[in-house]
């Protein structure tokens, strides 16, 4: 199945992380709908694993990670809007 692609655009977001605020709860990694984030192997200064951006091109700037974070450590901003060309299911 192909999408109709006349003028349809998806937002593309950019993720910012303050890694020393993170406490490693993993909410953003588990509930990201586009599977953008992963927990890194390194530690921050408090000794927790902080999230890293795995697939930066998948982010659609939905803002769920920003709202779920209990420690104000992650947020996303709108980078650009790109046109949908072809989506296969």
């Amino acid at each position: 199945m192909k999408f109709f692609n006349n003028g349809m655009k998806t937002p593309c977001g950019e993720i910012h992380i303050v890694k020393d605020r993170c406490k490693g709860c993993g909410f953003c990694v588990t509930y990201c709908p586009m599977d953008v984030l992963e927990l890194s192997d390194e530690f921050n200064t408090k000794g927790y694993h902080f999230p890293e951006v795995k697939n930066p091109e998948n982010c659609i700037n939905c803002g769920l990670c920003e709202m779920l974070c209990p420690d104000f450590a992650i947020w996303s901003t709108l980078k650009e809007e790109k046109e949908v060309i072809e989506v296969l299911t």
Binding site: K23, G24, G26, F27, M67, L68, C69, P70
Partner: peptide
Amino acid sequence: PGCGIGTVVN
């Protein structure tokens, strides 16, 4: 870590 009060405040 992960306490729900932080999410509610956010």
